Amino acid sequence: MDHGHHASLNRTAFQATVHCLTGCALGEIVGLVIATAAGWGNAATIAISIFLAFVFGYSLTMLPLLRSGLSVRGAAPLALASGTFSIATMELIDSLTILVIPGAMDAGLGDFLFWWTLAGALFLAFWAAFPVNRWLIARGRGHAVVHAMHDHG
């Protein structure tokens, strides 16, 4: 494999991981705001945040596919296939990071610790998901499938 192919693969994997991070971050923040406002406990807070991270991640993956003319029925399986492993990796690392930082789960939306922990957890999650996305894309899977649809859609 030549250097240009590696650079292109890294660039595509980086873009896919940024895309995944965007969906995960949006879902988590919305989930955390809902759970905090409702006064939910840690387990419910983590559950809704992870659930919404998947919802937002899949939705962001589906939008360009839908815009290219694909139906929801056609776009949904592509979004599931391309994003699941990346989102799961990101959510695992993110959730574990937040759980191990003392006081992070008890910090409120107005606390610096809340936002610092979330930012740090997402940073670590990004770098955990990057090699996952790179590996999948190198094998024609993951976001490579969605990118192929963009190119041909």
Rank of each mutant, 00 (worst) to 15 (best):
H152Q: 13
T36L: 09
D2G: 14
G83K: 06
V145M: 15
F51W: 01
R11W: 08
I93Q: 03
S71H: 04
A43P: 01
V18K: 01
E28S: 00
A128D: 06
I50N: 02
I137E: 00
G74Y: 03
I50Q: 02
H5W: 07
L118C: 01
L122S: 02
H150T: 05
L109T: 09
P102M: 14
E91C: 15
L124K: 06
R141G: 12
S86R: 04
H147S: 11
V30D: 09
C20E: 02
G140F: 09
F54Y: 13
L80T: 08
H147I: 13
G103E: 12
L96E: 13
M149T: 13
G23S: 06
D111R: 07
L60Q: 08
L96W: 10
A76I: 14
G142M: 09
A128I: 09
A25G: 07
A13K: 07
G39F: 03
D94Q: 12
S95N: 14
I87K: 10
G142Y: 09
W40S: 04
L21D: 01
L66E: 03
A7L: 12
D151I: 07
R134W: 06
A81S: 15
G153E: 07
A43G: 15
A53I: 00
P77M: 11
A121R: 04
P77S: 08
L32A: 02
A125W: 04
L122M: 04
Y58L: 14
L118Q: 01
A44M: 01
G4D: 14
E28N: 08
E91H: 11
P77F: 06
P131D: 05
A37T: 15
H19M: 06
F130S: 04
L60H: 08
A76R: 12
V33S: 02
I101V: 15
I34P: 06
I87M: 05
A107P: 11
A38E: 01
D151E: 15
I34K: 02
L124D: 06
T61V: 10
H5G: 00
M90F: 08
L124M: 13
A35W: 03
L78G: 03
S86E: 05
N42S: 12
W115E: 09
G39Q: 06
F130C: 15
N10V: 01
G74M: 01
G83L: 11
A35M: 07
A75Q: 10
A128K: 05
A129T: 09
Y58N: 10
G23R: 05
I137N: 02
D106M: 15
A129H: 02
H150C: 09
G27H: 00
A37L: 15
R67C: 06
V146D: 04
A79K: 03
L32G: 10
T45P: 04
M1S: 12
G4I: 12
V145Y: 01
G142N: 12
F85L: 14
L70E: 01
S49L: 03
I29H: 04
F114P: 01
T84C: 06
V146A: 08
L80P: 04
L99R: 11
T36V: 11
A47P: 02
I46R: 00
P77L: 05
D106Q: 10
G27P: 03
A144V: 05
T117W: 08
G69H: 12
R141E: 10
L32Q: 04
T61Y: 10
A148L: 08
L26W: 07
L65E: 03
T45N: 09
A121T: 00
